[in-house]
């Protein structure tokens, strides 16, 4: 089975974010980037499904500028077979629906029966692209997937529920799954994997080649507009305790005893 995995490159979790002059975007230069956490789990899940079946192809797709090529390289080094980079400027700057439209076009062009995505990008955090994609493709989907195996007629899927519960269900293929962080341990990349990745093909289809008109994708196609982006107003009552470690410790203990009365 061919499995398409959609991944996204996001700023490093510890990155200091600066806003640009428009006040609606972060400054991207001088940031360090990484593959989004749940997307790494999606790649791992695809590789395990391929290994369990003993056949198949894992194709990773990312939408992003030139820098995002690195996310593809990492996935290829883990063991994915091929990459697709939606790097054309017309793809960039869209909302989750624009991204889902582009991914739907790739899924159709690739005729991939299974599409995996991470559940949620750690940058904009919409947590909706996989299910929008399923809606556009009219495929069954499961969000927050914590387990998946191929069975006769489709997939058996474990979905995470609130309050530490899980739902086990079966869905037919073709399908879309949103993979939750923690589903499997993610493998380390070997040097051999990194060397092999350099020889693996990465396509760069244009919107036209995918049958997408420019006003349905990217900045031109987006419905959701960021009017402003700013640090949150501090509503916090947090009292910061400063000093040397010993001074902090003494002050904290004193406050916990006298003010909070919890010690």
């Amino acid at each position: 089975m061919k499995i398409l995995v959609a991944i996204k490159q996001v700023p490093d979790k510890n990155a200091r974010l600066q806003l640009d002059e428009s006040g609606t975007r972060i400054v991207e230069t001088d940031l360090s980037w990484e593959t989004n956490e749940s997307d790494r789990y999606a790649v791992e899940t695809a590789l395990r499904l391929r290994e369990a079946a003993g056949e198949g192809e894992v194709v990773v797709v990312t939408l992003g500028p030139e820098r995002a090529r690195k996310a593809i390289s990492s996935a290829l080094a883990m063991g994915a077979d091929r990459g697709i980079h939606l790097v054309d400027p017309d793809f960039q700057g869209g909302d989750p629906l624009c991204v889902a439209r582009a991914l739907a076009a790739v899924a159709q062009a690739e005729e991939a029966p299974l599409v995996l995505c991470g559940t949620r990008a750690d940058d904009d955090g919409y947590a909706e692209t996989p299910i929008l994609l399923a809606g556009l493709l009219d495929r069954p989907a499961v969000f927050l997937t914590m387990g998946v195996e191929q069975v006769d007629g489709g997939l058996r899927v474990v979905r995470e529920l609130e309050a530490s519960r899980q739902e086990v269900s079966e869905i037919p293929l073709p399908a879309v799954l949103g993979i939750q962080s923690g589903i499997h341990e993610v493998r380390f990349t070997s040097l051999k994997g990194i060397m092999a990745a350099k020889k693996k093909p990465v396509g760069q289809p244009t919107p036209t080649e995918l049958g997408l008109s420019a006003d349905r994708i990217g900045k031109a196609g987006r419905r959701l507009e960021v009017l402003s982006l700013a640090p949150p107003e501090k509503k916090s009552q947090c009292e910061f305790i400063e000093g040397k470690p010993e001074e902090i410790a003494a002050t904290l203990v004193d406050k916990l005893r006298r003010e909070a009365k919890v010690l």
Binding site: P11, K13, L17, L19, I26, D122, D123, D124, G125, L224, E225, V226, L227, S228, L229, A230, P231, P232, E233
Partner: peptide, 11 residues
């Protein structure tokens, strides 16, 4: 967005 490090106003 960005793990609650920023607030975005969306229309």
């Amino acid at each position: 967005p960005y793990d609650a490090k920023l607030v975005a106003r969306i229309f």
